[in-house]
């Protein structure tokens, strides 16, 4: 076995997982939770207080929501890090990577804490 002297595989793995989550899950939630329900196009019993409270209290739903938020954050962090480079910011690459992935980690912790308290 060879040695990999970089942590990039971790970030790339999270980026890839986030890319799949963002592709598979985000569009339908944007459509349903961002447009259909707000515009009254969904049956009201779908978002009754009782049903919603039961849904967001369920541990499986909480885990699902954590993945839905956290992994796209890592997906964003990775792409944004290179986007800044592409835009001509060639200095401070380590600091930029630290800030981007750091923001995703903080976002994940805040998301987990928020969901635990629901």
């Amino acid at each position: 076995m060879y040695k990999i002297n970089t942590i990039e595989p971790l970030w790339w793995g999270l980026f890839g997982a986030g890319g799949f989550i963002a592709a598979f899950l985000l569009p339908v939630h944007m459509l349903v939770n961002g447009m259909l329900i707000p515009l009254g196009a969904a049956p009201q019993e779908a978002y009754s207080p009782q049903r919603l409270a039961a849904l967001v209290s369920h541990p499986v739903v909480k885990l699902y929501l954590l993945a839905l938020v956290s992994l796209p954050l890592f997906h964003w962090a990775h792409r944004f890090r290179y986007l800044l480079f592409d835009l001509g910011i060639h200095g401070g690459r380590t600091a930029i990577a630290f800030l981007c992935y750091g923001a995703a980690i903080v976002g994940t912790v805040v998301a987990a804490w928020t969901l635990v308290r629901v």
Partner: peptide, 19 residues
């Protein structure tokens, strides 16, 4: 020879620069 090549292409100047 994969184990000989991977340290070069798996380094930060290798595959990871590609977007």
């Amino acid at each position: 020879g994969r184990n000989e090549r991977m340290p070069v292409i798996g380094s930060s100047e290798g595959i990871w620069e590609c977007t």
